[in-house]
Structures are given as C-alpha cells and as structure tokens.
Computed example of a mutant assay.
Amino acid sequence: MKLIIGNKAYSSWSMRGWLALKQSGISFEEVTVPMFGEEWEKRRDGNEFAASSGKVPVLWDGDTVVWDSLAIIDWLADKVGCDRFWPKEESARGMARSMAAEMHSSFPNIRRDLPMNVRKTFPPQPISADVSGELGRILETWAQARARYGGEDPFLFGSFCAADIMFAPVCTRLVTYSIKLPPFAQAYVEAILAHSWVREWIEAAQEEPWVIEKYEEAPGA
C-alpha cells in the first residue's frame, strides 16, 4: 500500500488517513507531497492524484485507489476486520460511526478559523460565536461517548478507534489555539496527544522544512 499525504504540520485529513493505516497494522509506503508548492501542483496533475481531484490523502492499494479519510478507514476495516476500527457493542458502534461522520461533514467554522498547525501554540484569543457553537457540539458528543462507553480507558469508546482517529486533529487544534476545556475534555485531549502514533506524527512534523505562512499567524493577526 502507498499513502500520499500533505504536510504533517498542517494536513488534518492526511493525519486521519495515516492514523487509519497505523490502526490497520498493514505496512505501507508513505509519500509526502508539500502542499501549495511547485511539486504539489505538478503531482496533482498526474495520475496519482487524478481520482481525488488533487486532494490528500490518497491510498493506493495495488491498482485500487481510495481517497478521502473516512473511505480509507472503511476500506481498511474491510481488510482487517471491523472490530479493529469500531466498538464491538452495537449501540456504541452506531454512535461512533455517527460521530465520525459528523466530524467528516461538519464544523466548517473551526476548519476555517482554527487551521491545523501542530508546530504552534498561540496565546488564547477571542473566538467567534460560530466557532464556539461548533466546539460546544464537539464537547457534547465527547461527553456523551465518554459517559456511556468510555469506561476506565481514556478514549471516546474505551479503546482507540476510528472515532478517535477522526477527532485527533481537532485535539491538536485545541492545543494550538489554547482553548480552555472542561476537565473531562482536557483529559481526553491529553490521552490523544500521548498516543504513540499521534506523537510520532507530531514529532515528524517538527522536522519538516516547509512553511505555509497563512497557517503561521495567530487568529486575528
């Protein structure tokens, strides 16, 4: 398998696809194409990116191409078994799938106003009502999952699963923008950031030479 990703510092969707492959246990080749530079434009015009219309991540499994992070999760779950990615208990699995899908399709204001940058920590800044509302919705679902299914383990549904993969980049954003969290959410964010694969991703991002200036400024700067 070959996974094409963007910069680890900035690409939240790439992070999800990469974590999904780690979760699968399948070995893979990792190809980083720095976003928005010359190589990015050249590679996007080639066959590797054709199916995704130039977006990352893109997974090549032999001659099969799968793009979009949630589709990659589903593809890998079909290969290695659903239980590796989703809770075994039926009602927990239904909630986890719903949360992952909502993360996939919603929260446009967070994406726009709090872009991912795992190399930065900005001082607290006022956030818009729209961002605040979306953060409230995320915390609400986290609280429900943790209360109903978390148990003594630190993740949303106990063991690390696809729902945690989908929310991992959100956790990095909450740290980057110094968002104050209730204790249960702070504990969850710390658990995600302490996960060995998340640490590996963030550490690799520190070594990247590429800088995208628009993601390096504090909100409102």
Rank of each mutant, 00 (worst) to 15 (best):
K2Q: 05
L3A: 07
G6P: 12
Y10N: 13
S11R: 08
W13E: 08
L19F: 04
Q23M: 06
G25Y: 04
G25Q: 04
I26S: 09
F28E: 00
E30W: 02
T32R: 14
V33S: 07
A51M: 15
S52W: 01
V56S: 15
P57C: 07
P57Y: 06
T64L: 09
T64Q: 13
W67N: 05
D68S: 08
S69V: 07
S69P: 06
L70E: 03
I72M: 02
I73Y: 07
A77V: 13
A77K: 04
A77H: 04
V80N: 06
G81A: 09
F85M: 14
P87Q: 10
S91T: 09
G94R: 12
G94D: 05
M95R: 01
A96N: 05
S98E: 14
S98T: 13
S98G: 08
M99Q: 03
A100Y: 04
A101M: 15
F107Q: 02
F107H: 01
P108E: 01
R112W: 05
L114P: 03
P115L: 13
V118R: 01
K120W: 11
F122Q: 05
I127W: 03
S132P: 09
L135A: 04
I138F: 02
W142R: 00
A147S: 12
E152A: 14
E152F: 07
D153F: 07
L156H: 03
L156A: 10
L156C: 11
F157N: 01
F157P: 02
A162P: 08
A162R: 06
M166V: 03
P169W: 10
P169T: 05
C171V: 06
K180N: 13
K180M: 15
P182S: 00
P183Q: 10
A187P: 08
Y188N: 01
L193N: 02
E208S: 09
V211L: 08
E213G: 07
A218W: 07
